[in-house]
Nucleic acid binder design. Structure first.
Length: 196
DNA sequence: GTCCGGATCTTT
DNA sequence: AAGATCCGGACA
């Protein structure tokens, strides 16, 4: 049986088992497909951030290996989903490992199909695709959640500092955020307060 | 056990 | 500019 063209093969785990910064760049333009019961929800990634492990003070794994961060210490190619501010979830792709606790945060998607609202911000990405903590540690090549290669060439990439990590010292200044230049679906990233 | 603050978003 | 609303991590 021929599948619809939109069911291309997901990215293999090996895609995620490479330098995290590179994965963050190459994820721009890729598609997230979520099976939510009878619903199919999909979006095209337009904004990401790289989190570079224990040495990166903005990365959760810099506080050590704990129940929450455990999944980041495992193999690449699974989801790290955590709750923030008591009401939103954020979706990450675990990169590298086992033993290397790095990840890429999906900050914005262009809604393609079945999305619940907009996807211009990490909390909205999870709301749009109905992703919550139950998908923590799920495969990114699975039936319920998958990341597929880009089906059209992404526009030029832009990069800048990550959002909301002003506490992270020199790591706050690193240009680890990537987005598709000119996309109207990128988060506003209103920058939070500047460090004193 | 208490306390603090956050990889956010919405409303004022 | 501040509230919503909860958990992880730090400390005692």
């Amino acid at each position: 049986m021929a599948e619809p063209a939109t069911f291309a093969a997901p990215l293999p785990a090996a895609f995620f088992d490479r330098a995290t910064e590179r994965v963050a760049r190459e994820l721009i333009g890729c598609r997230i497909v979520r099976r939510d019961g009878p619903h199919r929800r999909a979006g095209r990634i337009v904004e990401t951030e790289a989190y570079l492990g224990p040495r990166d003070r903005a990365c959760h794994s810099s506080r050590g290996r704990t129940a929450r961060t455990e999944v980041m210490f495992g193999p690449a190619g699974v989801a790290y989903v955590y709750m923030i501010y008591g009401m939103y979830f954020c979706l990450n792709a675990v990169t590298r490992g086992p033993g290397v606790a790095e990840a890429v945060l999906v900050r914005a998607i262009e809604p393609l199909e079945g999305c619940l609202g907009r996807g211009d911000g990490p909390g909205r990405v999870c709301r749009a695709l109905r992703i919550d903590g139950r998908l923590n540690s799920a495969s990114l090549a699975g039936a319920d959640l998958a990341i597929l290669p880009a089906d059209r060439p992404p526009a030029a990439l832009a990069r800048g500092p990550r959002v909301g990590v002003g506490y992270a010292g020199i790591w706050a200044k690193r240009l680890l955020r990537f987005w598709e230049r000119g996309s109207p679906f990128v988060s506003r990233a209103q920058g939070k307060r500047a460090p004193a």
